[in-house]
Amino acid sequence: MALRLPERVPGLPVLALVLLLLPLFLGNEFHLDIATQIALIAATVVGLNLLVGYGGQVSLGHAAFFGMGAYASAILTGTYGWTSIPALVCGALLVALLAWTLGRPILRLKGHYLSMATLGMGIIIAIVINNEGWLTGGPDGLAVEPLTVMGAELSIFDHYSLLGLEVSGALLWYGLAALLLLLAVWIAQNLVDSPIGRALRAVHGSEVAARVVGVDTSHYKLLIFVISAVYASVMGSFYAHYTGFITPQVASFEHSIELITMVVLGGMASTYGVILGAVLLMLLPQLLTDFQDYEMMMFGLILMLTMIFMPKGLLPTLSEAVRRLRPRPASAPASGQE
């Protein structure tokens, strides 16, 4: 298992450049809209990857954290008239508290019990959101107010003047989502390179060995679980404001599975890989529309074949292939390979 980032190139500036240039290649507002959503989901998945790729734990309920953030923002700004940021923070605190309460006893245990616990918790939250229609609007969904920061409203439908330029709200939203993604990646990379990250890598290698040398494994795992849950909650809040309408599906088990699939598909423990996973999985439904009745079958087939032939995920497999193509003898040691 490759534990170190496979990229030798400075990833963050490259990502920033790609995000900056992307709008020039997008044909219309629809493409921009999809790109904005992908950026928000990718940021969520970068957070989830901290848990899966570095913490070695699987969450089958991350969409519930995402959904809690989304609904907290929708309800607090819509029904109770809060402004966006306090609502977002309130949602994130709630999620952090829940993740901590759930994770503390579970993560003391060895093994994959967190996946079962998050599965149970995730579905319970989805059921509550679905049932408590007086608060959440029930299965038919809930309209969400536009993002409001310091009295200024950011709506995809309006136009704004920025440094003397007329800019559409949609483009501004894209810029915000891109910034959030960059920030998410930056924080994630700093975490990975911090003592926490090193301790986690030790845990991933051999938990028992890590414990023997005095690493308080459950403490670090709990910390990373809470952080990744907060990632999801914050992105959920932005996502709700952006799309303007949410249904219980954002918190559903299927959505959780989708998020975890993005991580594995793109490449566990590879921050840029999981972003690629998010891009691919978000685009597939749009790309497969021509198959009509065969869409579902094609989706399953693509997912299956990718994982069979690229079990390490897209980016790690691709970058390995690129490395092999280079004529130079292996100068970089195959670090972390089992």
């Binding site: 044909g27 219309n28 507002e29 629809f30 493409h31 809209d33 999809i34 959503q37 969904g141 799309t243 309408f245 949410i246 249904t247 599906q249 954002v250 439904p285 749009q286 529309t289 009509q292 869409e295």
Partner: peptide, 21 residues
């Protein structure tokens, strides 16, 4: 025509695609 699979967010995206693309 597009199939949203009963998912509201997919529906939103497909409606947007119909309108913009």
């Amino acid at each position: 025509h597009y199939d949203d699979g009963g998912n509201a967010n997919e529906a939103r995206n497909f409606a947007n695609r119909l309108l913009r693309s």
